[in-house]
């Protein structure tokens, strides 16, 4: 039976904290293969995970930027 998105997010979250069992990996992979929204959610959870590490890694870097007058315009276009 097909797992629903809500349950899939539980596994995506769990994946950030422990290794999933074979069964869990399989059902998650199956769901992600068919659900674009959940693939984005999976990326967002990973990004949240990286954010903590970035916060720390950026400490030194940002300060270096602060010292050399930053001329970053606010109206950067993506």
């Amino acid at each position: 039976m097909m797992m629903m998105c809500k349950e899939a997010t539980r596994l995506m979250s769990l994946k950030q904290d422990r290794r999933l069992t074979f069964q869990e990996r399989l059902s998650l992979r199956l769901h992600l293969a068919m659900c674009g929204a959940c693939r984005e959610c999976d990326r967002q959870f990973s990004l949240l995970n990286q954010a903590g590490q970035r916060f720390e890694a950026d400490l030194g870097k940002r300060l270096a930027n602060d010292e050399s007058d930053t001329t970053a315009p606010d109206d950067r276009q993506g």
Binding site: M4, C5, A37, C38, E40, R43, Q44
Partner: peptide, 14 residues
């Protein structure tokens, strides 16, 4: 039914 609500559907953050 456990599917995403339309207004909460995850979108790409880049």
């Amino acid at each position: 039914n456990g599917r995403w609500q339309e207004n909460a559907r995850p979108a790409s953050w880049g």
